[in-house]
Design a protein around this nucleic acid. Structure first.
Lengths: 165, 165
DNA sequence: TCAAATTAGTTGAAGCCTAAAATATTGCCC
DNA sequence: GGGCAATATTTTAGGCTTCAACTAATTTGA
């Protein structure tokens, strides 16, 4: 039926379905992330009495033993400057990080883990990894590898167009 | 070298690397989602002066023309009851939703889109879909399909263990 | 029927988050 | 050196988010 035309799709259909497919992937990505994130937040709250933003901040600081400025920290965490102020203030109250004024630049601060902060993070990180692995237990290693590859690829293309509206 | 043993990995190594791989996938998932989500939030704010939570609520209501109770809405959106109260209050102030007391159950409310709300959502949804597609432009259709498959599979396994700590 | 348990929803306190304005300091350029 | 733009950070106002406590209505079950 309808010879001379593509059987079921025109070029316009293609671009519409492409757009639908992009949307589907984004919705799934968001949904998966929200479910896992919810679980991780509960885990951190129940097991260690802490929050995901604080855990993230500790993780970033753990990767830079020499310390980070507030600004550098906010870039690593993908959050605003003002946000970091609050999170670090609370971590300082808990004695997990140390905020010292920079000698070179009196506007800036260096934030570092305290010894207590290092110890606390090590323990949390171990539990966190085990918990995540338990959640993803049912996924095959092969699927995990594929996901890793595809998400890495996605990250590269998405990370670039940060500014486009 | 070292005959009689597996070349490079023991069983303990396997399980350690599996756990690391799970963690990597989760971190990538989270990172990708945060970057895209940031962009979507900016887009909705700049283009329509609205927020992602409000857009999500409108989207949920659009799928149920007969309306939803506050509780049903909170389940669809994966957020707490109290949260929905605030978001719907703001949407009501904007004239996009209508909240009517239920006849059958005087504790409950039915929330529906107003005509204005329907129109506003249609326009936002169109722009949103195009924007997301533009962001994922550089990903091949084949990768998109693979991602969709894998994320669907992931969603199924993760959605089950909602309660485990 | 009536008291107890459950369910629907709101409120309040606390934390996370952003954008924009304010502060303070630095660096540059004339 | 003095002024001015840029930079590092905090503050503020407003919205999102949760949990726990609360109110009100419904259901259950003796």
């Amino acid at each position: 039926m309808n010879p001379g035309k593509p059987a079921k799709t025109s070029r316009a259909d293609d671009s519409a379905s492409r757009s639908k497919q992009s949307l589907r992937v984004w919705i799934r990505l968001l949904h998966n992330t929200r479910i896992i994130e919810k679980n991780v937040r509960s885990y951190l709250a129940n097991e260690f009495g802490t929050t995901l933003p604080r855990f993230d901040a500790l993780a970033a600081l753990d990767r830079f033993p020499e310390g980070l400025t507030m600004g550098a920290l906010s870039e690593h965490l993908l959050v605003s400057n003002g946000n970091v102020t609050g999170v670090i203030a609370r971590l300082q109250d808990e004695g997990l990080v140390l905020r010292t004024a920079s000698k070179q630049d009196r506007r800036a601060f260096h934030v570092k883990l305290t010894r207590k902060g290092k110890r606390a993070f090590q323990e949390m990180a171990k539990g966190h990894e085990a918990y995540v692995n338990r959640m993803l237990e049912a996924i095959s290693a092969s699927d995990l590898n594929k996901l890793n590859t595809l998400l890495t690829r996605l990250e590269k293309t998405v990370a670039q167009e940060r500014s486009c509206s």
